[in-house]
Design a protein around this nucleic acid. Structure first.
Lengths: 218, 218, 218, 218
DNA sequence: TATGAATGAGCCTTCATTCAT
DNA sequence: AATGAATGAAGGCTCATTCAT
């Protein structure tokens, strides 16, 4: 039941009104950003409203409840925000490609670049995705959001096979694997910010390319 | 004033006294097993003492606090138990191998087998490792335990390169990647127990072998 | 410093200014109506500003606070509104009667009719009266309002006795009882809108007439 | 989900273990009694854990959560306790009767007596029944508990009609009315402890007897 | 070896209301 | 005439842990 009634009120009018007002949007963004940092730092379970409010410099957690319908709503918004920024980086790089392999490599590179410039974003995303997989409380819509990469990747792999660029493998499984490798880099970087990201990027590229290599390439 | 510490009291006398008594060990094992199941089911964050006690059929969480110094201690014991059973499966398979590639494949196969027969164990292990990576509360000693596989794997990869069986790659990074792929299989299986584990096993083997392939193989 | 008090500010100028402006009155009525529905639906305790605003289609509870000095003020207005509409139905019916018994039956019938046509109004009224009896937060003036029926009824019973139409009973107590029977019908109808209201009406009439029957009648 | 794990743990073993230990039972009873007083005083909505703990002289509300699975559980226990004590008073009086009218009057008298000696109990019961009717959160089992009187009363009325002791009326409806009259007495007494309970008792008896009077009686 | 009893801190959410345009 | 923004207090509940047998 949806009650007292910050601007988070309804799904329909939120779009219209909420985003409209400047202060409101700014506050929301401020909270979302603080949430992203906090999740990246302490994990999803550790990111309590109190901790988020703390980081955002808010006087009370009430302000979060005011701007978001609940923790799930905040999480969904966090995911939306991350995905949007992520797409800004990834999409242009990917769109510029004509071959499946080019697209695949562009995707990997874009991930690394996004990780480098927006570390907490990608760390948060991975962390949320993980928690969401066990705790089933995320809305179907946002669950889809989490899985968007996966579906797209699988399709890309399938196309590469059809065009003869890629070799033999199970596209559904390999998509899972490729994402898990991406996540491994994110994890490692989350744990040690002084990580040699370039080395990981190189190995990631090499590994994925070997995994997808066609007969000709080998 | 020093009151009721339970057998978990000190690290030194624990060894001596605890292990000695039979009932005690049985209770501990019962709790650890319940913890493993609970973690596999609800995640590390979801595995509260209450939930573990529930599954173990204990009337109060007090019994857990009695047998373990705290949640970290229980977690450490869980890890120890899993690792022990894991080693029982993996070590003989690995020991029978003479080549680096043989060892690597044996390791992968053993993992899959262990996952198939002890699903909750491996799921728990991965879950704990992940949580521990963000929340830094695990004792250094046990952190090492989590990383045992990693170190061994890296060494194996390095040896394979030295012997010429394996191609070029960064052994430290690839070790991380290989484990992350293993974990991906575990994750997928945790989410959907009806998973086609064989398909994942095949792809895992293929992927890892391609990643380590030497010039001759290619 | 005196800031933004809204039209509800003082008791004196409210009358003058408020009622004057048309929009204002319309808004107030809209809120009061939403409050009535909400109370009837969720009970007095469940009728939070948020829920009322929801039903009224308001974007924030602020509008309620703006038009009413507080929850008690809104409740009082709700009561006033209900009572006014109730009087519109009851008074003419009652006024047309010449005997005490006729008046009594007309009162009962009018209650049933009002319940049938304005279910939420009577349900709300009963609900508020009940809550107000335990939680003493209603202004004395409005407490009287709740008891208006009671006093009138008692007087009617007394007159019927004096005229010889009614038998022997304690008029003060019977007034309480008659209203409680009326409330029982309201309660039952509130719980099950598919109630056979006619059956209840018949029984109510019969019961009250037997209770007040004079020696001759028996 | 049922977690941490006071003695309230499961429904099955609660019976066995809980009640067994003396201290535990005493605490539970203490809390239940405080809850009864609080509900009678402030209404169901006003009876927060904090207020109950206050009245019971507990240091924190946590003790309530420890002994009861939640507010619903406490409420159910309150109902159970009241009903038990109520039955102790009513049942023997009712059982001693041979006629339907005798039973009916005994029931009414017993209610008045119980109200006189255990005011807060009956007040609480009525208050809970009311809240439960609007807020649908009470377990079906306890909902039945609330309605037990009603069903029994209806049956009694029906029997009295069959035996010719009672006149014509709708037994289901009259049962509702009779209970509502009882509740009216309770309400009145709750509001004014200095009430002339005898007068109310007399009128209640008279009213109900007139309502059920057979042709011969009239 | 086991437990019953209790606890302080923290969780998210909801409450009516106020400050400032 | 209306709103956007914010708030302190309280709500029930769950956490791992401790005191006392």
């Amino acid at each position: 039941m949806q009650v007292n009634r910050g601007p988070a009120a309804d799904d329909e009018d939120r779009r219209e009104r909420d985003r409209a007002t400047f202060t409101n949007a700014a506050r929301r963004a401020q909270i979302v950003d603080a949430a992203i940092e906090t999740i990246a730092d302490l994990g999803y379970a550790g990111a309590s409203f109190a901790r988020i409010a703390d980081r955002a410099g808010l006087s009370s957690t009430r302000l979060i409840s005011y701007h978001f319908a609940g923790k799930d709503d905040l999480t969904a918004e966090v995911l939306r925000m991350i995905q949007a920024r992520f797409a800004d980086v990834v999409r242009p790089k990917v769109a510029a490609q004509t071959t499946a392999r080019g697209t695949l490599n562009a995707f990997l590179d874009a991930n690394i670049e996004f990780l480098r410039t927006n570390r907490s974003h990608l760390v948060s995303m991975v962390e949320i995705a993980r928690s969401a997989s066990l705790v089933r409380r995320i809305a179907p819509a946002d669950r889809g959001r989490t899985g968007a990469d996966l579906a797209g990747l699988e399709q890309l792999l399938r196309e590469g096979q059809r065009s003869g660029e890629f070799g033999e493998f199970d596209p559904a499984v390999l998509a899972v694997f490729v994402l898990s490798l991406r996540n491994a880099v994110v994890d490692a970087y989350a744990r040690r910010p002084d990580l040699d990201l370039d080395a990981y990027a190189r190995e990631l590229r090499q590994l994925v390319n070997r995994a997808t290599a066609g007969p000709a390439t080998r």
